[in-house]
């Protein structure tokens, strides 16, 4: 991996002349800027390896040479100002961007060693190995029960007992079981926003995904529902590999093990959450996480 070859600036001590936004200005000017990756990240076993990944929407490049390993069974947060390509990166992982006609990519990603962008890769099968939760809760127009077991249903699973078990496990896993166990066969549309989002998480973990992708799962929720979803992410920690996009610094610092800071389609700095929030290598990162910019 070429990350290791990147020159790493000494921690803390930056030359006086470099201001907090130097690198970011360089990025904005279109120059290549190397990613700062903390060595702790490279020690963890990765579930997903993103390797020199570039993506274009038509003529416009949205991701520039992203190289980052996502550690197994950890929560990794993606932060950065809006429009910097966080969602794009997430949607590239399960190849949802294939649905956008103008998208073109180079580079690759590997899920537990399997190349995701291999032409022989069956996209449908690939997506079954991941779960995704979107910014706005999107429960399907069917019962709560059917929502949860959707992934199994489309796989042709019709064994009632198996479905029941998965349904209960997933809903318990999403901390929703107690609230809905008496109305599993009611429409999912009747749930509150926070419940709907947890239902979407239950749906995403029902098929035992290798990676769970969460795209700003709390941004459409009120503070109480947000708290519940955050608690849930805490619980998922250690059991699932989670890649979460968030706008909220507190959320990132509370819920994640690793944090990656992106800017204008580039990975700027990537390290453990405590590293990024307490002693970041770059002043730019410090400025962003403390809210002085962004």
């Amino acid at each position: 991996m070429n990350i290791q070859a990147e020159p790493t600036a000494p921690r803390g001590g930056q030359p006086e002349t470099v201001t907090a936004t130097d690198r970011l200005q360089a990025v904005a000017a279109g120059r290549d800027v190397p990613s700062e990756v903390h060595p702790e990240v490279l020690e963890a076993t990765p579930v997903l390896e993103i390797d020199r990944f570039n993506l274009w929407y038509g003529g416009k490049q949205a991701l520039h040479g992203i190289t980052m390993p996502i550690p197994n069974n950890k929560v990794t947060a993606l932060i950065g100002p809006s429009g910097c390509g966080k969602s794009t990166l997430l949607r590239s992982v399960n190849r949802l961007n294939d649905l956008v006609q103008s998208v073109r990519i180079t580079g690759d990603m590997r899920l537990n060693g399997d190349s995701i962008y291999d032409p022989r890769m069956d996209v449908i099968e690939l997506r079954k190995r991941m779960g995704m939760v979107f910014q706005k809760p999107n429960p399907f127009p069917m019962s709560i029960y059917e929502n949860v077991v959707y992934a199994l249903r489309i796989d042709g699973e019709n064994n009632r007992a198996a479905l029941d078990e998965v349904c209960e496990l997933s809903l318990r896993g999403a901390a929703l079981w107690d609230e809905v166990k008496d109305r599993l066969h009611d429409s999912a549309i009747g749930l509150s926003g926070g419940q709907q989002q947890r239902l979407c998480i239950a749906r995403a973990i029902a098929a035992e995904p290798e990676v769970l992708l969460l795209d700003e799962p709390c941004s459409a929720l009120d503070p109480i529902a947000t708290g519940k979803v955050e608690d849930l992410i805490q619980e998922l920690r250690g059991r699932y590999s989670v890649l979460i996009v968030t706008h909220n610094m507190q959320q990132a610092s509370r819920t994640s093990d690793y944090t990656a800071f992106m800017y204008l389609g580039r990975l700027i700095e990537y390290g453990t959450t405590s590293g990024i929030f307490t002693k970041p290598i770059l002043r730019e990162t410090e400025a962003y996480v403390t809210g002085r910019f962004g």
């Binding site: 079954k128 991941m130 999107n138 399907f140 992934a151 796989d155 749906r203 098929a207």
Partner: peptide
């Protein structure tokens, strides 16, 4: 809404 279609695709539906 497109989000529903995407949600379904993300679950591995054809």
């Amino acid at each position: 809404p497109n989000s529903m279609r995407e949600g379904s695709y993300a679950c591995g539906a054809g």
